[in-house]
Design a protein around this nucleic acid. Structure first.
Lengths: 319, 319
DNA sequence: TTGTACGCGTTATCAT
DNA sequence: ATGATAACGCGTACAA
């Protein structure tokens, strides 16, 4: 590998001058600049980025922690992040965790060892205290609500948006409302659960554990949902789906089983993805791509600030 | 940042000994090892990975070039790659190109400047000669068929699988067959187009440009497809969809428009994704996740070898 | 405007 | 078994 020294020798100048040319610094005569450029060309020289990183202490690499990449929710978040990364000439290091803490810790470790400049955590698995410990090594931003914490965050208020959806269904006359979640653990599921319990309490309804369906993430989980609902007594008249994907899957199954939507089952999705528009699904719009962009900019900026994104109801044909 | 020198001083040994302890080399007395470990603990020392990379000339970073992350096709490919990366303790640097050559060139550049050890190109946009030029800097593997080239590849024979699907439809009595593609450029679209033309010729059918529908990638593109088919004279009786996503979208539209599948329109998808199983869609199975795994291992291995993955017809209810 | 020399943090070589 | 030191390739005070 030819290095800066070789170039300097060939051009008959010092390495400093070569470095100056490389980094477009001022104070280098046109004559020497030409000589350097020619030498670079002759020797097919290109800098070793690791040496640059070691020297300046930055990598232009940003870490992104998320559980899956093959799910539209994180896919859209990632799309927003990637868009901004492209703009700012940053590269992304992907940590697909499958909810394994180990992978998340490795990301934190890479921040500590300066292999990445900053870290975006889209879905946290490890304890909060571990995040805090690593804040000293570089900017960390999360996609969850953390009040009074020295961490930047862009998040959806799942409690509020879930409550809004429940209230909307209540207004429409529904009293038996079920919902699906992706997994029992996780902050968003917990928030939704709390919102549901408070809603039940506020309206004096009965809490039924069998109205809650776990592990619903994908389109194809719709089948499971319908099968479950048909297996219980007094099935709900309305369903809050984890996402538009799940809502769409449920709708398709309703078609197949000749269950009328919304007459026999009302459905609300989340995200407002294209599929919801196409299938005319009422949904709570979450600007995922925009969230991703904002997460990136927070990570880049380094300062600490929190942003709650607005979720709005899109009324369509499934309620 | 405390460094190896500080540790050495604190432990009363040389940096070499510290390095030996760090890298579990032999020839270090138990006594000194203990001292070093204590010093590491006392000082909260952790190595600067960039320095390690500079020294050993490797980064344990693998680049992945793909157009989108929010599409199930690439999502699954990426999933396979990520799985193997996890196993081998590699990290992935993602290059989401949106089919911009610039981003692809940056990936190649990062290989050249040793910021990544190797590169997986899932969808190529730049000229082949550019790829060849960069082979000297590290392993590059591609997801397309390249015969007699010094590059590793894992790919689907799109020509063969498309031909197989066409023949299957022909056997079933179809003579007017349309198909959708994601974009006019791109190797897979070209292969499919060629297969179609050859098929037409072999059976003495007429080639109709309006049987080919461009820019179909997502579920929601199904609507566009149906609208197009209804706008032309003598619409096809069978359709080869870009992917199961598109096939599913088309099917849903057929439901909505009361078009009977397969009686009025037969449909074949590609990939055999979960959605195809759920909707009982006949499809050509492509083992995407497995392809991703194989791509990673080729990139890791460094040798040159080609693998054509087998595509098989899954007969279900849409033909 | 240019160059020398050192620092970044680690590994590898070669003595001892 | 251990350590001094060169090497990795680059950026940048500081001196000239």
């Amino acid at each position: 590998m030819t290095n800066i020294k070789d170039v300097a020798a060939r051009a008959g100048v010092s390495v400093t001058t070569v470095s100056r040319v490389l980094n477009q610094h001022p104070y280098v005569s046109e004559q020497k600049r030409k000589a350097v450029l020619r030498a670079i060309d002759d020797l097919d020289y290109y800098p070793n980025i690791n040496a640059v990183h070691l020297s300046i202490g930055k990598t232009h690499l940003m870490g992104v922690v998320l559980p899956y990449t093959d799910h539209p929710y994180f896919g859209l978040l990632l799309k927003g992040i990637a868009k901004k990364a492209l703009e700012h000439n940053y590269k992304l290091v992907l940590f697909q965790t499958d909810y394994q803490k180990r992978v998340e810790l490795e990301a934190l470790q890479m921040l500590k060892t300066k292999q990445i400049d900053s870290l975006i955590i889209c879905s946290r698995g490890c304890k909060w205290s571990i995040i805090e410990e690593h804040l000293q090594y570089g900017p960390i931003v999360v996609a969850e609500k953390r009040e009074d914490q020295p961490v930047s965050a862009t998040y959806v208020d799942h409690y509020a948006s879930f409550t809004a959806a429940l209230d909307y269904l209540y207004e429409k006359g529904h009293r038996k409302i079920g919902y699906t979640i992706s997994r029992v653990t996780g902050t968003s599921s917990r928030d939704r659960d709390q919102a549901y319990k408070d809603f039940i309490k506020r309206h004096g309804l009965v809490y039924r554990a069998d109205y809650i369906i776990d592990k619903c993430l994908y389109f194809e989980d719709g089948k499971k949902v319908i099968e479950h609902l048909q297996s219980i007594s007094e099935p709900p008249t309305a369903l809050l789906a984890t996402s538009d994907q799940v809502a769409a899957g449920v709708m398709l199954c309703c078609h197949q089983m000749h269950i009328k939507v919304p007459e026999e089952l009302a459905i609300i999705g989340f995200d407002n993805q294209p599929i919801a528009k196409m299938m005319n699904i009422t949904t709570m719009e979450i600007p995922l791509e925009h969230m991703g962009e904002h997460l990136f900019e927070q990570a880049l900026g380094g300062g600490v600030n929190s942003k709650e994104v607005t979720v709005s109801l899109i009324e369509r044909g499934t309620v």
